[in-house]
Design a binder for these strands. Structure first.
Lengths: 228, 228
DNA sequence: ACCTGAACACCGTTCAAGT
DNA sequence: ACCTGAACACCGTTCAAGT
């Protein structure tokens, strides 16, 4: 029995298909992502996902081995969307590799704050072993590679120090990931996850990892000057 | 009915006390931390904590309002232990503020990798609103303050650029937090959480946030030289 | 004051049975 | 091939009842 007046998009039985609709799998995935956004990662229930899709609570098992498999699909879709948004941000940023690198980092944080529960599932312990889901591992790796490639480009123009790009990219990944985690967990001071605050925090962070916290060499302890 | 041969420390009924032992609350907290270490954050069950303490599954409610309250106590103890370890690391590092700052950052990562499930509960969404538990909020803040104070000291000696210490400390916090999260979630390349690998990764990270990723100004693009 | 035992409303998962 | 309904073994939480 459906609970009450809940909007449920495109329910068209189409009796040519088996029972309810041809692509229950896609509907379940979509529903799970929507449910996570409103109820949080812990609030996600296989039974409610099934109910929202209009099927019995046992039906999902025909399409996903278990709850973890559904969560893996959710996580994979999250990484794909994150990559899309980072790529879009890089495009907007223009041709300067350093600008592109910073834009990607900011987009990383922006995605996490916009979809905190989704972000948690992408990285959290709900999926204990990512190697069981190769396509998820691939999608996750692609996100890291975007940062690595951006670093590579910066090294080519001489903006970033030399060294293995992936190794140099790790601190950059860590700092944007750390800021994202702290903000969505309510530790970093981003009141209400206000978009402008988050944006400027992310800008500060990417600048910090590029320039470092050290006093600019050659600058006197009391008078700081901008770089060239 | 206790399951089988499980070691259960110091069960001394002491009939002077109420029923089982005088400080069931402490026993529950201790048991919860132990259970998290072996079963993970998701595997923690109020009923099993009670069973291990030798009481009924309803008994914990006499000492903790609900499961979240127990988790908050677990998280608080985690922050205290982390602070202890960071303080110890700073002491070992000596008097140089920059060395102390790096040691604190490394200790932060080391704690997370040594107690991943505990670390997740300290920062995760299991405790939705930290402000409900003031002592937890205080303990968490103390950890951030240690980094902030270390940055302050570095600014006094001129090693770190000027500015609001807490604001300057945020990138440092983000980078160690991010590395910790990536490692325990199996994203960063620390095979098996090997202690030496983690240690050197943490060293690299703290160096990176101090020096920055920028090519050292004044160095030619092809020949890098050490700083003074 | 502190704990027990039964009860309730949930879960994830399985499996025979239906079409 | 795909879905249902009942069933099982769990949860967290509550509450009358015991000492």
């Amino acid at each position: 029995v459906p609970p009450a007046g809940e909007r449920r998009p495109r329910r068209r039985p189409d009796p040519k298909q088996g029972y309810h609709h041809g692509n229950l799998k896609a509907a379940l995935l979509e529903g799970a992502i929507a449910l996570i956004a409103t109820r949080g990662a812990d609030g996600l229930t296989l039974r409610e996902v099934a109910q929202r899709a209009g099927v019995s609570h046992a039906a999902p098992y025909r399409h996903f081995k278990d709850k973890t498999a559904l969560l893996a699909a959710v996580a994979e879709e999250g990484f794909r969307e994150m990559c899309r948004e980072m790529a879009a941000a890089a495009t907007v940023a223009g041709a300067n590799p350093l600008d592109r690198f910073k834009a990607i980092g900011v987009a990383y944080v922006r995605f996490a704050v916009a979809h905190p529960s989704h972000f948690r599932i992408m990285f959290g312990p709900e999926i204990p072993d990512r190697s069981v889901f190769p396509s998820l591992a691939t999608a996750a790796w692609a996100a890291f590679e975007m940062l690595g490639d951006a670093i590579s480009d910066c090294q080519r123009t001489g903006a970033v120090r030399e060294g293995d790009p992936l190794r140099v990219a790790l601190p950059a990944w860590a700092i944007v990931h750390g800021l994202a985690a702290l903000v969505i967990d309510g530790q970093a001071p981003a009141a209400g996850h206000d978009a402008r605050t988050v944006e400027s925090l992310a800008q500060e962070i990417t600048t910090a990892i590029y320039q470092g916290l050290a006093r600019p060499s050659g600058a006197a302890p009391r008078s700081r000057k901008g770089r060239a």
